[in-house]
């Protein structure tokens, strides 16, 4: 299709002699039916725009009440006591970012490996099936990953968490308070419901998203340069390193950030796994963490007027964060494909 469009475009390009031929306006007015169509389509677009602006505007408006009371300390307060007008998102944002970071650390190598496998190593007959499988993985509801994390993963990860905290506890992130690795009777509950486990669950949800974006960018690496690399005697990995990876760098970064945007907003998977605490908790292996979305799910019911406003402010902060991440990501992805797509 693309080549045909291109040749058609070449055919209609102006002759050198006809330089004074101005571009004419193509679609003129073709009757009242068309004007009606344009009006209906525009109103559809305007409706969507209105709904979306309403969501954003209403969030900001309702959040304003809490933000006016809490001022800048909203960003630095860790406690969440809306009745005492003492609220802040320092703890929940920290938890959210840490969970998303753990998720990305697990998801990115898996996603890049799988994307490379599908675009470079897999037999062509299998390729479509594999792509569908990855898409299916993205469609599995998050509550199912949450169940899996709560009932299966939790028990299996304790050993790894204990090992990490025992031998790498000198690294602040891996430190676990109140844990004595030399006590054989010590309870394992200090290692459960942690950022680490929540991050692994979220990783399962974001890996397919990252993978499908990276795979698409990889598969768009130019064939000529691939063949050129092979013709110069490169091995398959040599070709990948010289052609596919440099070409897909933007896609890898952008896909990772899009996954990060999803990871920041995950609710149910996180909510099922963690046990919430409202203090800044940088130890990822230790029980107790929190995230903005699970805070909302936990506290929306008993919220007063001010509490609701504070939750809105937290939701707005989360939304702004995912918004910035997503915009940067999609601009990176769009730029990385420059000239490769049809439009």
């Amino acid at each position: 299709m693309r080549t045909r469009a291109r040749t058609a475009g070449a055919g209609t390009s102006p002759e050198p002699g006809a330089a004074d031929d101005r571009a004419r306006r193509l679609h003129g007015d073709s009757g009242p039916a068309d004007r009606l169509f344009r009006a209906v389509a525009t109103s559809g677009g305007s409706l969507v725009l209105a709904v979306m602006l309403l969501v954003g505007g209403f969030l900001t408006y309702r959040a304003w009440q809490a933000l006016r009371v809490a001022k800048w300390s909203f960003l630095t307060t860790a406690a969440w006591e809306p009745d005492a007008h003492h609220v802040g998102i320092a703890a929940v944002i920290t938890g959210t970012v840490l969970i998303a970071a753990v998720a990305i650390v697990f998801a990115v190598p898996l996603a890049i490996g799988t994307a490379l496998y599908i675009s470079e190593y897999a037999p062509p007959r299998l390729r479509r099936t594999l792509i569908s499988t990855i898409d299916l993985m993205a469609a599995v509801p998050s509550v199912i990953y949450g169940l899996w994390g709560l009932f299966f993963l939790q028990g299996k990860v304790i050993g790894l968490a204990r090992w990490l905290s025992t031998y790498f506890g000198w690294f602040p992130l891996f430190k676990v308070d109140n844990a004595d690795p030399h006590d054989p009777l010590a309870t394992a509950t200090v290692y459960t419901a942690s950022t680490f486990i929540a991050g692994m669950v979220v990783a399962m949800m974001v890996t397919p998203i990252i993978c499908s974006i990276i795979r698409e960018v990889f598969s768009q690496a130019p064939v000529g340069e691939r063949e050129g690399a092979y013709a110069l005697g490169a091995t398959r990995w040599g070709m990948i390193r010289a052609v596919v990876l440099p070409y897909g760098t933007g896609g890898m970064i952008g896909g990772t950030m899009l996954g990060l945007g999803r990871a920041l907003g995950e609710t149910i998977g996180v909510y099922l796994v963690i046990s919430p605490v409202f203090e800044i908790q940088p130890h990822i292996l230790q029980a107790g963490t929190s995230s903005v979305s699970s805070l909302i799910a936990l506290r929306y019911g008993e919220a007063s007027q001010f509490g609701m406003s504070a939750l809105m402010a937290a939701g707005l902060a989360l939304f702004l964060m995912t918004l910035v991440v997503n915009f940067v990501a999609s601009s990176i992805v769009a730029r990385s494909r420059s000239g490769a797509t049809a439009e």
Binding site: V48, L49, M52, L53, V55, G56, L59, G261, L264, G265, E266, T267, V292, S293, I296, A297, G315, L316, L318, F319, T322, L323, V325, N326, F327, S330
Partner: peptide, 13 residues
């Protein structure tokens, strides 16, 4: 704006 709204976390919706 539509692209921005895909970033809306479901809990915020």
């Amino acid at each position: 704006v539509v692209e921005a709204m895909t970033a809306l976390p479901s809990i915020v919706a």
